[in-house]
Amino acid sequence: MHTEETAQIQVIPADKEKIKKIWMTAGILGLVTALEFLIAFTVPHEMETLRVSIFVAMTIVKAFYIVGEFMHLKYEVKALIWSILIPMILVTWLLIALIHEGSAIYNAIYL
């Protein structure tokens, strides 16, 4: 009986700072989404390049907080961080290249 008593699981009390940080990150994510919403209806559609750049920048900010804080990648070893990031940087290149390709198709059809 006694051994079972000592083998009881010890619940460690929550660290207030840690919990606060999680909610802070959540707050930032919510705020950035709200800001995106605001920009979608205040910056006119004629300023397309500005709109797109702001949206992409804000998406990267959100991705940084989700992957860095929530998925904890920020605190992993450098080798792990880079093995995730480098392939995604190459994918970004594919995105840019194929959007460029898309406008070339547009030019071939409509111009």
Binding site: V91, L94, L95, L98, I99, H100, E101, G102, S103, I105, Y106, I109, Y110
Partner: peptide
């Protein structure tokens, strides 16, 4: 998503 980008940029 890249396919979306390609097809969208190929449309008026």
């Amino acid at each position: 998503l890249i396919t979306y980008g390609l097809i969208r940029s190929a449309h008026p």
